[in-house]
Structure formats: structure tokens, C-alpha cells
Design a protein around this nucleic acid. Sequence first.
DNA 1: GCAAAAGTGTTTGATATACACCCATGC
DNA 2: GCATGGGTGTATATCAAACACTTTTGC
Lengths: 254, 254
Amino acid sequence: MRDFIERFEMGEENYLPHISIDCVIFGLSDDALKVLLLKVKDTESWVLPGGYVEKDESIEDAALHILRDRTGLSNIYLQQFNTTGSSGRSFPEDIKVICKSLGVKWTPDLWANKRFISIGYYALIDIEKCKPTGGDLDQEYSWIDMHRLPRLMMDHKDILLKAYESLKISLSNQPVGINLLPEKFTMPELQKMYEIILDKSIERSHFQKKMLRFDIFERLEERREGVPHKRPFLYRFDEKKYRDGVKKGARFDV
Amino acid sequence: MRDFIERFEMGEENYLPHISIDCVIFGLSDDALKVLLLKVKDTESWVLPGGYVEKDESIEDAALHILRDRTGLSNIYLQQFNTTGSSGRSFPEDIKVICKSLGVKWTPDLWANKRFISIGYYALIDIEKCKPTGGDLDQEYSWIDMHRLPRLMMDHKDILLKAYESLKISLSNQPVGINLLPEKFTMPELQKMYEIILDKSIERSHFQKKMLRFDIFERLEERREGVPHKRPFLYRFDEKKYRDGVKKGARFDV
DNA sequence: GCAAAAGTGTTTGATATACACCCATGC
DNA sequence: GCATGGGTGTATATCAAACACTTTTGC
């Protein structure tokens, strides 16, 4: 694991200047879409997990490193959604607060105070598989409901909302949402996922028929056990069938 | 108009380091989707119109400046589609060739040789309204058929293909294609635009019914004159109706 | 008159929507 | 037994796809 604070202090030598990576990590729990946020010590403000790009590292690898540090996961579904770079995009006052919380010396001419262009990625993960950590920063972290966001530093709320819009559009045309679920899932679970993210209710019978018509889910012999009422079948996403469908020009609109 | 060569020679002082903007400018002509490319003097290679970001300029403004310089147009439909930044993304040999064609001195430690992160924008324009110029570079330019691309320098072909994929996806869900047409257009013209870009034929009657059901086009009294055969009606895009439709959750899938 | 393109209508099958029915489970 | 959620079936409206018919224009 990289020692972030040490590298941060020598940021001018280690990182590409003026460029940052911000990650929006989505997960599902308690029937809600959640986002992993970090609390800045001694404040009531939160930030997105983020970092910088090493001079010999791709921007995607930089995002993957951030994700691995925060979630303990590799093999993550990752999607670049937006790069934001308005002309005066620098936040020296916020950086000051963050430096204080990290125990790092802040000066007015610190490299991190400069104007930054942020490359945004969102990740979709199965929250059960994830072991979140404060990373090297030993920060407080929390999975926070998309619809009950706290105050976020810098322009991270704008970035987060853009990620959410982007996710909704993707989910409407592609079955990316399966990355939020365990490998085996039921149709009601799949439906709930769509309903939560797209924020609308879907008719049960219609949903099942549509999904099965896509012909990208394999129904298993097993059923979900240990639940009340009738036990729903388990399904598994069939990557190959999906790719074949895409090749043939099939659509997966919800 | 900015003197690009002068600013390029002092690039280290004028621009954000390691960041470039590449623009894919799409237009329609001769029943084909075309892209504005610049020919590098004394070579058989082409490049995308591009540039760098001034230290006090937003990335979107940087793209708009490039577009204005190349097309003479402002008020352009502009869409950011991808940021590419693999770890070794530097092209000193290509930069050398480009410098030569610009009449600019090249050295191995030139700022432009360094690793660059490219922010990609595509623009949709009415090719008739456009007065393309080589810009300050006095380069040869050409509208080139998307399906007959020449050799492109650096990784510009990858960038171009990503822009095209992104355009196709957008066009499948949103009526962005109207930006490629004049203000007044006929249904057959609209249909042709979809057929060209999505690279598939669409049934005439079905297309008209679907488009009119969207309820975002206003049929005018006039018809397209000076054409053989029956004269088709002219239509105009109704921005307000479209926004209302989006608000109400209407879909515009083609 | 003829060919070609455009507007419109018709037919058939597929999908969307709403709802009904039965089944399995925990209490 | 009863409430609840899940699987499946049915009826109707809407839409997709293919095609036919009519109109309008240039030649």
C-alpha cells in the first residue's frame, strides 16, 4: 500500500500537475443507492475518494489504485464519466482544511492549491464484498444515501450528481447494474436495483418478461433460501450471451 | 484571432502542462458523415484539430476556441466524450514532424514532447454554414468520410473512433442529429441523417410516424422547393417541446 | 404517360401495461 | 388459515415492420 501522505508532500515531483482523479463509488444497501464518502476530520464536510496521477501511471490505473485503497477490491467495474475543468477551479481554503486534517503542512503556494482539472470515474461494486477503509488517510468513511447527501467540499457535489446522471443513462441501455449485485441474484432483486437507481416503480410481470427476453440471464436450479414467502429463482448474468447480443445489434433498453 | 505559433513556442508559460484538447468536428455532405481533418504539410498524415488549455481558460472554452478558429462558427453543439491518458502517451517523433511543418524549432526536451492527457470533444455542425480555415497554421484541411479515413498521427484515429461511437449512442437516445441539419429540414433529410450515422436503413413510414409521435418537430406550411417529385414538408425542431418532453420522462429512442 | 419520391393507410406481429390467478412460505 | 411475496397467464392498447395505395413532380 502506498504511503499517500508522504507522496502528497512531494506531490510536485510525484504527480502530473493540475490533474486530479475523483471516484464515485456506488453500492446498494438497505434498499437505497449509496455512495462511499470520506469525512474530513474535525469538520462536518465530506469529500469523494480521490487522488492524483503518478507521472508514469495511466489515468485509469490511478482510479483503480484509489478504488483498491478504499474498497480492498480489484476487478472493479469502472466507468469514466466526465472531466471538469472550469477556469478558476482551485480550492485553496478547502485544501487548507484537508491538509490540517491530514496533519500536512499547508502553504499558500502549495501545489495542491493550484487550478485542477478533475477526471471523474464511477465504480459499481457489490457492497457486501467491500471492506472499506479510510485508506492511508485514516479518515472516517461512510456509505451515504444518494438522496440524503451531506455538505461536500469543493465542487464534489456537482461531480457526484453528474456521475449519478451518467449512471442512470447507462443503466437505461445496458445491464451494468449487475455489478452492484452478487453473482447470483433473483429477479425481484434485479428489479429493485432498477427501481432504486432509476427512481421509478416497475410492473413486476412486465419486468420479468422483458429481462428474460433479453436472453442474457441464466436461470439456476437453486432458489434464494431463508426468505419468507415463495422462494424466488436465482439467476446469473451470462457475459457471453450478452456480448453475442450486442454483436447482433440487440438492444437492452429498460 | 490568436497567433497560435507564437503561443505554441512559449507553450510552457501559456498552457496547462500535459493537457491537450482534441476536437472531432462532424458534418454531413454528399450523403456521408464527414470529419474535419488537417493535413500535416509535406506528409501524407492527418491530425484532428486540437490545441491546449490556457492557464486561465476552461477546458470547454479551449475547445470552443479551437472550433471557432477552424470553422468560423460560435454557438456550436459541443459534447465532451472521453479523456484519454495512458501512461506513456507522448509522441515526440510526431511532434517533430508537426513542428517542422509549422516552421517551429523542435528540441528533444520541448514541452510538447511530454506525456499528454487528451480531453476529447466532438462538435456537430451544419457543414453549409461552416467556413473552414487552416486556422493560424495555414494547413490544408478537408472534410473526410468517416468510412474512408486516411492515416492519422499519434492516436488520433482511436480518439476519432471513440467520438463516433459516442455520437451513435447519443443519437440513439436524443435528437442531437438536428445540429447537423439546417434549421428547416424535411423528414426524408432527417431520416437520411439517421441512416448515415447509425449505418442502417430505416423504413420510411415507420420513421415518420415515430418522429412525429415524439412531438418535438413543428411542421411548417412551406415545402422544400426546387426538388424533383413530390415536395416534402419542412419541419423545425421545437426546443421547448423537447425540454417539456424530457421533463415528463419521455424517451426519444430511435 | 412514366418514373421516382413523398405522404398516408392497412395489416400483422411484437411489446407494453394492467391485472388476475395460483403457489409457496412464515407466522 | 392467513398475509405476503413470487411465478405465470390473459386481455387490451400501443408500437414495430412490412407493404400498398395515392399524390406530386420532372422528364
